[in-house]
């Protein structure tokens, strides 16, 4: 096994967009912008998801996903359930 293989992270894969944890201080502003009453109305992401594990995100964290769509770049949010 080469060294490169051991360092493989899910985010290296072509299909995986950038994920990041949204700091708690920004959450409210985002919910207001999306006109959503609470976090649990947003799309979900499982705590077992390889990306969540790699980020070490906790339950209830908001994940910002920077997608590269066929229609351009887009920001998507998911909540760890």
């Amino acid at each position: 096994m080469s060294k490169k293989k051991e360092q493989f992270s899910v985010f290296d894969h072509v299909l995986v967009p950038k994920h990041e944890i949204v700091p708690d201080s920004e959450v409210e502003a985002i919910l207001a912008e999306l006109r959503v009453e609470s976090k649990d109305r947003l799309p979900k992401i499982l705590p077992t998801d390889p990306c969540v594990k790699a980020l070490k995100a906790k339950r209830g964290d908001l994940i910002r996903i920077l997608r590269k769509e066929p229609t351009g770049e887009a920001v998507y949010y998911r909540v760890v359930v």
Binding site: K5, L15, H19
Partner: peptide
């Protein structure tokens, strides 16, 4: 396949979407 030699794992693709989901997450 992850452990296979000379394979560029960051470009591996399968038409089994569930397998992709399992290994690379829901977004992939």
């Amino acid at each position: 396949l992850k452990k296979a030699e000379h394979v560029n794992f960051s470009r591996v693709y399968t038409n089994n979407v569930r397998e992709i989901e399992k290994h690379f997450g829901i977004e992939a």
